[in-house]
């Protein structure tokens, strides 16, 4: 376990086409890891544009309808929103711990424990979100004929609310799946997570899903609280 950095990982995780590079396995593996990190970052840049387009819709409508958006923002449940933000930020902490632990390849129990905590926190987020959805439906906050608020553009706010929270929840669901996959693999084979680039890749994706929520929080829950 305490061999030169990269050797154990290279033996376990070096893949084509990186294995064909004209370097030693340790250097080739370092390059493979860099490639994986770079690749997921390109994908994250793509995801940034994905959510930027959604946020742009929100921004344009909020600029055009400030009063209605304030009224609609007041109608969301800030307790659920704040709780869920705290849950996701905490899950980012455990995810970062898991990734940094696996990167060193030294702390298997820490890595597994943190991965389990991350998945559990993700699930907790979804449960809270489920309660919130139930309350939203009871309060007639679904756009349509029986919508609770008077202002017509408030319906646009809630159209966005439902769409973006569902899209976010799908992203989070994918994240939970990826984390669980690592957890199962790491449970079965003690060495599989050691220096495995997949941990880093999963972690980066997880953090992005968290970051999206960090911006959704002031967009969905904070408008119109002062009034």
């Amino acid at each position: 376990m305490s061999g030169a950095p990269g050797e154990a990982g290279a033996a376990a995780h070096l893949r084509e086409p990186w294995s064909e590079l004209e370097t030693g396995p340790a250097a080739a593996f370092a390059r493979q890891r860099d490639g994986a990190t770079f690749g997921i970052w390109i994908f994250l840049a793509s995801e940034v544009l994905f959510f930027a387009a959604l946020f742009l819709i929100y921004t344009a409508y909020r600029i055009a309808n400030p009063e209605a958006f304030a009224a609609a923002g007041r109608a969301t449940n800030i307790v659920y929103g704040t709780l869920n933000t705290a849950i996701l930020l905490t899950s980012s902490l455990t995810m970062a711990m898991a990734a940094q632990g696996a990167e060193k390849g030294l702390f298997r129990r820490l890595t597994l424990g943190c991965l389990a905590a991350t998945a559990a926190l993700g699930l907790a987020f979804l449960v809270v979100k489920g309660f919130e959805y139930r309350e939203d439906i009871e309060k007639h906050l679904v756009p349509g004929a029986h919508f609770a608020l008077r202002q017509a553009p408030a319906q646009i706010f809630f159209g966005f609310y439902w769409l973006v929270t569902v899209v976010h929840a799908i992203h989070l669901g994918i994240g939970i799946g990826l984390v669980t996959r690592l957890l199962v693999k790491g449970w079965r084979d003690p060495d599989v997570l050691t220096e495995n680039p997949q941990v880093e890749v999963t972690a980066l994706y997880w953090h992005l899903v968290d970051l999206v929520w960090v911006f959704l929080y002031p967009m969905l829950y904070l408008p119109g609280r002062a009034g």
């Binding site: 860099d34 990190t37 770079f38 970052w41 390109i42 940034v48 930027a52």
Partner: peptide, 15 residues
């Protein structure tokens, strides 16, 4: 690495 920072910056710039 600079490369990774560049990728992150590109996402923000295009947004």
């Amino acid at each position: 690495s600079g490369l990774v920072r560049l990728a992150a910056a590109c996402g923000l710039f295009w947004a």
